[in-house]
Design a protein around this nucleic acid. Structure first.
Lengths: 177, 177
DNA sequence: GTCGATCTATATCGGACCTATATAGATCAC
DNA sequence: GTGATCTATATAGGTCCGATATAGATCGAC
């Protein structure tokens, strides 16, 4: 899903600056299924403004840099809903860890164990992060999305805890050859 | 993980053309955790060749276009292993479906149900695809990776089957308001 | 006092990658 | 004959990322 559509979606939930939109990706639950960089957020917002889907006002604040607060227009809202009515792009999952596990036989057992340790730690942190945002104030949609993410992370952790010993046994056997 | 590294990894398993590498992403189990387009594979292979990590030979065949078959060099192999010894990039998961579910309240119940139908169908197809490649000839690494992917897809399907009724109930309640 | 880390903010450059398309030829079904 | 599908290589233009820049404030370590 393109960054312009993502920004429109976020703005249907309320006005925001480019910086705040990026923070949603880092702090709130969004990072688990969507993401965008400053390098794409700002051009996207500028373009949405040019196209009339978004309006912008500048605010100054004390001890802080000035802000540009973006609001979705009714045109923008309609466009966003229209995009949700079309077939959605398919999920994309990229996992360097999983790809690297295909080549575990090329690596020393200690490296493979280290990779597993690091990855499990990362997934546990993401899971904890998702739990920290499982607040009672969430909307139905947010509850669904949080639950979805948690289910996936739980499955990953279960799988890794279940199969780790086997992987390490294979590594040790292979290292003995 | 960048496409050059991915191509190097694939070539450690045997010589391949750019087209075959792309087919691995579509037909074999790779699509579940890694992907690259022709637009990036060919420039990557050309660059790897220029840099001495890969060598190329041209082959002609009957009734088929000529092929360029790429082989990894020992320099390339060392470079690939070196990249696996460094910290790996983190996973990236992008799901337009999950993002769209945050805005289910903006949509008619029939659209949300349709989205769920389509997504479940997609995940079921991916799961079936992964099963079709669960052959006895798989390496240990491939078995691990297949098992990982299946665990994730099972978790997703379980979650969706479990929560679908609830989502649709919320949609119906909201549509009645 | 200085430096680095961290934070709030906006902005952008150059490289990486994707989508769509092009070229080429073969086979098959309508 | 046309379109779909397949084997193959190739690339232009658009999108996005990572790194960086600018600006200023606060805090902690040296």
């Amino acid at each position: 899903m393109d960054v312009r559509t993502i920004c429109l979606g976020i703005l249907t939930h309320g006005d925001a600056t480019g910086y705040e939109i990026k923070k949603l990706f880092e702090d709130d639950g969004y990072q688990h299924f969507v993401e965008a960089s400053f390098g794409s957020i700002y051009p996207a917002l500028n373009r949405l403004t040019d196209e009339g889907y978004v309006s912008v006002r500048e605010e100054s604040q004390e001890k802080r840099p000035d802000r540009k607060v973006y609001s979705i227009t009714s045109t923008g809202r309609s466009a966003f809903i229209a995009s949700l009515l079309k077939p959605l792009p398919e999920d994309r999952h990229r996992s360097p860890f999983v790809f690297a596990m295909l080549f575990a036989d090329l690596l020393p057992p200690s490296r493979v164990s280290g990779m597993l340790d690091t990855y499990i730690e990362q997934v546990e942190q993401k899971f904890a992060h998702l739990n920290a945002h499982h607040a009672a104030s969430q909307s139905d949609g947010e509850k669904f999305v949080s639950g979805f993410g948690r289910a996936v992370y739980v499955a990953i952790l279960d799988f890794l805890h279940t199969h780790r010993a086997e992987v390490e046994k294979q590594q040790a056997a292979q290292a003995a050859e």
